[in-house]
């Protein structure tokens, strides 16, 4: 039986994939440029737009308060600061209002979930979860 097993060849598989990945930047520099561009989109398309009309998120019937102007301005400063780092962090997967006058940058990567919270009073907090377990909580000074 051992001989028989030894002579059976495993299924032949391609050793190297030849399909090109055109969407992934090929160098770290290009990756960083791509992330900077996505931070820009976050600032221009989301935060500045919200600043023009924050009341779209106010809903007294549900008890939701719109992000405060102060909070949106602080969030823009945070986004600019992160974008301009020599090695910028990956951009958020989304930005959402928290319904309490603040907002949250959320980044999801596999089983890791990061929430960078900017509260209504401009206090900041970075929470990192792994498998839904809170691994770290960092208080941020945003002023």
């Amino acid at each position: 039986m051992r001989d028989a097993v030894a002579t059976l060849s495993p299924e032949i598989k391609a050793a190297v994939s030849t399909s090109g990945d055109k969407s992934t930047p090929v160098t770290a520099e290009r990756l960083e440029d791509n992330w900077r561009e996505r931070w820009n989109e976050c600032i221009d398309s989301t935060l500045i737009e919200w600043g023009r009309n924050p009341d779209q998120f106010a809903d007294p019937d549900e008890g939701f308060r719109a992000p405060t102007t102060m909070c949106i301005q602080a969030a823009i400063r945070v986004a600019l600061r992160l974008r301009d780092l020599k090695e910028p962090p990956p951009p958020p997967s989304r930005v959402v209002p928290d319904g309490e006058g603040g907002l949250v940058f959320e980044r999801i990567a596999g089983d890791t979930h990061e929430s960078l919270r900017v509260y209504a009073d401009c206090a900041g907090e970075l929470l990192t979860f792994k498998h839904c377990e809170l691994k770290s909580r960092l208080i941020l000074r945003l002023t």
Binding site: S93, R94, V96, P97, G99, E106, I108, S115
Partner: peptide
């Protein structure tokens, strides 16, 4: 829907919010 906590067009789960 107004709070953007879920977007069926993305491949993301809802926001914990």
């Amino acid at each position: 829907d107004s709070m953007h906590w879920y977007d069926p067009g993305s491949n993301l789960t809802p926001s914990p919010e």
